[in-house]
Computed example of a mutant assay.
Amino acid sequence: MAPAHSSYDVVIIGGAMIGSAVAWWLARDPAFDGRILVVERDPSFEFASTSHSNSCIRMQFGTEVNVAISRFGLEFIRNFRGFAGEDAPEIHLDDFGYLYLARDEAEAARLRTAQALQARMGAGTRLLSPGQLHAAFPFMRFDDVILGSHNPGEEGCFDGGTMFSEFRRRARKMGVEEVKAEATGFETAGGRITHVTLSDGSRIACGQVVNAAGPRASRVAEMAGIAIPVEPRKRYTFIFEAEDRLPRKLPLTVDPCGIHYRTDGALYMAGCPPVTDGPCDPDDFEMDHAVWEDRVWPALAERIPAFERIRLRNTWVGHYAYNTLDQNALLGLHPDCENLLFANGFSGHGLQQAPAVGRGIAEHVIHGGWRSLDLSPLSVARVVSGVPLTEAAVI
């Protein structure tokens, strides 16, 4: 079905979590009364990064802006009804926390510096010595660990699927229009995008455009003659059952060996990148099954002896929209186009950062800048300057 109108105040390219968050924040703002069109190539979202996300939130970042984004994300999850309305469902947070493990002094120093930043910003992250780690998690081996960092109560797995569906449902009720199509080109004049052309043949006049295309973000940027360092990268997820269940919930443990694992309801989840981590085609979801046998299972059993007897239940491949510059989001206006807003390159942080970023991009559309939270450190303009904002805490 073609769009109902030939012109929209805002065209959002990409209708998954980020695009839907932007649309919802825009539509609910009394200062905005324009038309919004969300262009989504696959409204089933079967292969979207949103659908393959592990749906977690953490305070344990090493940059102030990312901690601030997470602090708001936690507030948003805890008070979803306050933001969305009393008829909204509650968003459940299983707050088992993240557990970062350091096995050398350089990594331990990073954890200490990050914990000091997080504590200064109100987060409850605590550092754990090897003895404290053994006492808290006696079912784990820490012979190679010199320091841990854990934040129970503010981190864990949240119901991102419900949040996403509520963004979409409520945005539609407020007049946001969705169309199944792919953006195939831009018409520009005077440094602005004037029209978006769609795969269904539509030619849509636009006031502002938001690039929320996830792993395909670079393709959208190229239509405006802009290069951004965002590429699809595979991430593997494994769901498994343990014959001997652990005596307590397993935090999302970021192991120095390069894998991570956590409780997943009555089961457990592990994840990792490919052996060779590089760009892939956005339609490539082929699993390397040897990774489980050769890398993940041995590492699990080494850290947690009870995981020597486990049974693999499910696997899937998702994509990070990976920012090769510094693994941080690219947000806002690019100097080369005055009405194309970027919300890209989250490198695995998109779901947890969607509430703050959706609000921020909506404020940028309406007011021309950041209002509630200063997201300028994540400006896409740093791609032009070549000055990265390095985030060491990337999984």
Rank of each mutant, 00 (worst) to 15 (best):
R28D: 09
R28W: 03
R28E: 08
R28F: 02
D29R: 12
D29K: 10
D29I: 08
D29W: 10
D29M: 10
P30R: 14
P30G: 05
P30V: 10
P30Y: 08
P30E: 15
F32P: 00
F32R: 12
F32N: 08
F32K: 08
D33M: 10
R35L: 14
R35A: 12
R35F: 05
I36V: 15
I36Y: 05
I36T: 11
I36A: 10
L37K: 04
L37S: 08
L37Y: 07
L37R: 08
L37C: 14
V38W: 01
V38K: 02
V38Y: 02
V38N: 03
V38D: 03
V39K: 03
E40L: 04
R41W: 04
R41V: 06
R41E: 13
R41H: 10
D42G: 10
D42M: 11
S44T: 15
S44H: 04
S44M: 10
F45N: 00
F45M: 14
E46Y: 09
E46C: 09
E46F: 14
E46N: 12
A48F: 02
A48D: 05
T50Q: 11
T50M: 09
T50E: 04
S51N: 12
S51W: 09
H52C: 01
H52Y: 07
S53C: 13
N54S: 15
N54E: 12
C56S: 12
C56Q: 13
C56D: 01
C56E: 06
C56M: 14
I57C: 03
I57Y: 02
I57M: 11
I57T: 07
R58H: 01
Q60I: 02
Q60V: 04
F61L: 04
F61P: 00
G62Q: 12
G62S: 15
T63A: 06
T63S: 15
T63M: 11
E64Q: 15
E64R: 15
E64P: 00
E64Y: 04
E64S: 13
V65M: 13
V65F: 04
V65H: 04
N66W: 01
N66P: 00
N66M: 04
A68C: 05
A68T: 07
A68L: 15
A68E: 12
I69N: 01
S70V: 03
S70Q: 10
R71Q: 12
F72M: 12
F72H: 14
F72N: 07
G73N: 11
G73T: 05
L74M: 05
L74P: 00
L74G: 00
L74W: 02
E75K: 14
E75W: 07
F76L: 10
I77E: 00
I77P: 00
I77M: 03
I77G: 00
R78A: 09
R78F: 03
R78S: 09
N79G: 11
F80S: 06
R81L: 05
R81P: 00
G82F: 01
G82D: 11
G82V: 03
G82S: 08
F83T: 08
